[in-house]
């Protein structure tokens, strides 16, 4: 099996290496480049923990070969943290913190990148669009409640208002003419 040379721009920096064709992009990022924010949570392209942006679009880096990313640009969560590498100025990561959109943190880098990609494609998100847009990212800790809020905040929405609208649309569907209870 012949190795292949790849040139991949990762978080704005050019990287190059001779790699086995079977090397997964996720492992290229983690092992070859030492960028370990990107996690691998399954082997069936189900969980989305490994989500990164490839030329600006969300992909699951466990199901992309490094050779497929040759000559392309990859953004990982580290790439949102500014030159210093520790900036939370990014609207998505800032919203995840403010809304407590993470607990154990394992799904977080993938969630953050999925949300980043989602907003890039559709800045006018509502709760349903966020939930459906994140169908490929699993989280075991948060029940998604605060992840959805974080995505709405990052998209410039008021999460309380959006959740109320969604709850009322459920109520309208399930109980026409009935205004759902107050909740809190």
């Amino acid at each position: 099996m012949t190795n292949v040379k790849v040139d991949i721009t990762v978080n704005g920096r050019t990287t190059t290496d001779d790699v086995e064709p079977r090397l997964l992009l996720a492992h290229y990022l983690r092992e070859n480049l030492g960028l370990k924010a990107t996690n691998i949570g399954c082997d069936t392209t189900s969980c989305g923990a490994c989500t990164v942006l490839l030329d600006g679009e969300s992909v699951k880096s466990c199901t992309v070969l490094a050779v497929q990313a040759d000559q392309l640009a990859v953004t990982t969560m580290e790439g949102l943290a500014g030159e210093s590498g520790d900036s939370l100025d990014n609207p998505v990561t800032a919203a995840f913190r403010a809304e407590h959109g993470l607990q154990c943190g394992f799904c977080t880098p993938g969630m953050v990148m999925a949300v980043t990609g989602l907003i890039a494609e559709n800045p006018d998100l509502d709760e349903r669009a966020v939930r459906e847009g994140l169908e490929g990212n699993l989280c075991r800790c948060t029940g998604y409640h605060n992840i959805v809020r974080a995505a709405l905040v990052a998209a410039g929405k008021d999460p309380d208002a959006e959740q109320e609208i969604e709850a009322e649309s459920d109520a309208a569907r399930t109980a026409p003419g009935f205004s759902a209870g107050s909740g809190s």
């Binding site: 949570g41 969980c47 075991r140 029940g143 409640h145 969604e166 709850a167 459920d170």
Partner: peptide
Amino acid sequence: TFADYGFPSAAELPSFDL
């Protein structure tokens, strides 16, 4: 696998009223 096991995503759940 997670393709076969019924682990829900955000799309299967509502927001919760606490």
